[in-house]
Design a protein around this nucleic acid. Structure first.
Length: 573
DNA sequence: CCGGGGTCGT
DNA sequence: ACGACCC
């Protein structure tokens, strides 16, 4: 029987997927609104990273060569976007703005411009407030603590677009709405409210998808963009009453090209295409992908495919276990993955640059120092508390003058200590005998423990960066490229990873913070108190030791030691 | 001719 | 350490 092959649907959640419209371009437009009505693009090296809709109207598109863009649209305005600082800052600002609406921190970023928010608890709560006899005059409560905080809305209608397209008033002939549709209405009105606030208060437009899981929310948003929202409406599965219909989830998924499904990337899509058409499929990166398009419906309905066949086809050495079942679920619009909890710090911080030619030690040293300094700066931005924790703690007692001088820097504490440093390069391969060069994007990397001196806030970023390059990065480079010369790098990346969150700092690390998670953001911050002395103050209080102590942060569990690791010779200089 | 980031799993 | 996936 056909139905046994279908993965089970669990559609109890309501999830919003936000996508900031042409984000890099929007960051420039926010500073200079006159760009909005002009064709405008952001360049990284030789490519157009993104462009605004005025430029797209004239035929420009993402990842196009700058040369082609200028030929098609000679009056295009271009800004450089290789330094991501301003984009990262804007991304964080918008993320925090949206986070303030969340009741439980179920908030997940994808790239700089996409955010999922699981709003199930807010929808559940507001469903209880509805007057079923007067849905038109509803009030959406945004705070459990303050029921007056919220907005008026008409719960009898959906906000924004729907899939499938609404044919008229929703509900049955008597105008009655089922509970599931009503939940989607609430999600759509919350999405509209947040989108409007984002635009009014931050000046950014967004595109939102509303559905019962991450996959569907992200995909359905694509139906109407930019500056719009789309809800995938129930019934998602076919019912007994309506057994000849697919349900809206399959109806929606079936038309997609398989490579467009999040989670099915280049490799998986190629394997699926070649199994379906039974011959090799050429892929042309310049001309929009696969020569042969294969729809979700074709894979899903193929007589020889079920999830076990998919596991055999897609699995193998190196591939994740259960990949066949996962893909089978995705093809049906089933995605039970959770929207992950908001994390106070990233898993990794990396800085990279690419080069036409990087083949001498002199040039390499310059580049490594630049990258290292950017990395140290990034660490101080992304891994230090924003609050002046130390001073705040002392505010009830006296803060003497000498402490006050250092409070800006010393008052901040590390939210996490990366334990690992990684150097990655992309070597340009040597010429082959016929004079051509094999083009490869392959990278090689080497990791080592991150020295503790990088956490010393008294030293300048330049000093820390130089020391890091001299004492650590250069050794890693020799390990990656033992040849004295002959190498030529097309890319260098420097990263810190393996974050050890500082004790008591994680918002999910202990019971106190779990309870705080259910309060609004401002209240969480207001209630926050530091109960321990910041570790970096330990070394600050005394003389610098000359001994070579625990020179590097330890691998494994636990917080790195901070006693007196620093010092070698030239450090005090 | 080839962006600068991220996440996770093996 | 690398390779898949995402923007």
């Amino acid at each position: 029987m056909e139905t046994r092959r279908l993965p089970a649907r669990k559609d109890g959640r309501i999830i919003l997927h936000f996508d900031h419209d042409c984000f890099y371009a929007a960051v420039f437009e926010a500073r200079n609104p006159s760009l909005k009505s002009l064709p405008f693009a952001v360049q990284q090296k030789h490519i157009i990273a993104t462009c605004n809709y005025e430029a797209r109207r004239r035929g420009l598109h993402k990842l196009m060569l700058v040369r082609d863009a200028k030929r098609i649209c000679p009056d295009v305005i271009i800004e450089l976007g290789e330094d991501l600082t301003r984009f990262r800052d804007a991304s964080k600002d918008l993320y925090n703005f949206i986070k303030a609406y969340s009741w439980d921190g179920k908030l997940e970023r994808l790239g700089f411009d996409e955010i999922w928010m699981d709003v199930t608890s807010m929808v559940d709560y507001n469903m209880e407030f509805l007057n079923r006899n007067d849905l038109q005059h509803s009030f959406f409560v945004l705070s459990k603590e303050d029921p007056t905080l919220g907005f008026a809305y008409d719960a009898s209608v959906l906000a924004g677009h729907s899939y499938p397209k609404a044919l008229g008033p929703s509900g049955d002939g008597d105008g009655r709405l089922d509970e599931l549709s009503l939940r989607h209405h609430l999600g759509s009105h919350l999405a509209l409210h947040i989108r409007h606030q984002l635009e009014e208060q931050k000046g950014y437009t967004s595109t939102v998808g509303i559905a019962t899981n991450k996959l569907l929310a992200k995909l359905v948003g694509n139906l109407n963009k930019p500056k719009a929202q789309t809800t995938l409406m129930p019934p998602l599965a076919s019912s007994d009453l309506d057994s000849d219909s697919l349900g809206n989830a399959l109806l929606f998924m079936d038309d997609h090209e398989i490579g467009k499904i999040p989670g099915i990337g280049f490799k998986l899509a190629q394997k699926l295409r070649e199994f379906i058409v039974q011959h090799p499929v050429e892929y042309d990166f310049a001309n929009g992908g696969a020569q042969e398009q294969v729809s979700v419906a074709r894979v899903r309905q193929h007589p020889d495919i079920d999830f076990e066949k998919l596991e055999a086809l897609l699995g193998g050495p190196g591939s994740p276990h259960g990949i066949g079942y996962k893909v089978w679920c995705l093809l049906h619009g089933v995605d039970d993955s959770e929207v992950s909890q908001d994390r106070p710090v990233p898993r990794q911080i990396s800085i990279e640059d690419s080069y036409l030619r990087l083949d001498t030690m002199t040039k390499l040293l310059t580049e490594l120092n630049t990258l290292a300094q950017s990395l140290i700066k990034r660490m101080r931005i992304d891994l230090l508390s924003t609050e002046d924790d130390f001073v705040e703690e002392k505010s009830t007692s006296e803060v003497d003058a000498s402490e006050a001088v250092d409070r800006v820097v010393v008052g901040k504490r590390w939210l996490a200590h990366p334990r690992t440093l990684r150097l990655t390069t992309r070597p340009r391969l040597p010429l082959r005998v016929d004079g051509t060069r094999e083009r490869t994007m392959k990278r090689i990397s080497h990791s080592c423990p991150l020295p503790n001196f990088v956490f010393d806030l008294r030293a300048s970023t330049e000093a820390v960066a130089e020391k890091l390059v001299r004492q650590t990065v250069l050794h890693m480079f020799r390990r990656l490229h033992p040849e004295k010369s002959g190498w030529d790098l097309s890319l260098v990346n420097l990263a810190v990873t393996n974050m050890a969150e500082a004790a008591g700092e994680s918002k999910t690390a202990n019971g106190r913070d779990i309870s705080n998670m259910f309060k609004r953001q401002d209240e969480v911050l207001k209630d926050f108190r530091v109960t321990e002395s910041p570790p970096e103050l330990v070394s600050f209080s005394g003389e610098l030791s000359e001994e070579e102590g625990s020179h590097v942060a330890a691998f494994g569990e636990g917080v790195p030691m901070f006693n007196d690791d620093n010092e070698d010779d030239d450090w005090n200089e």
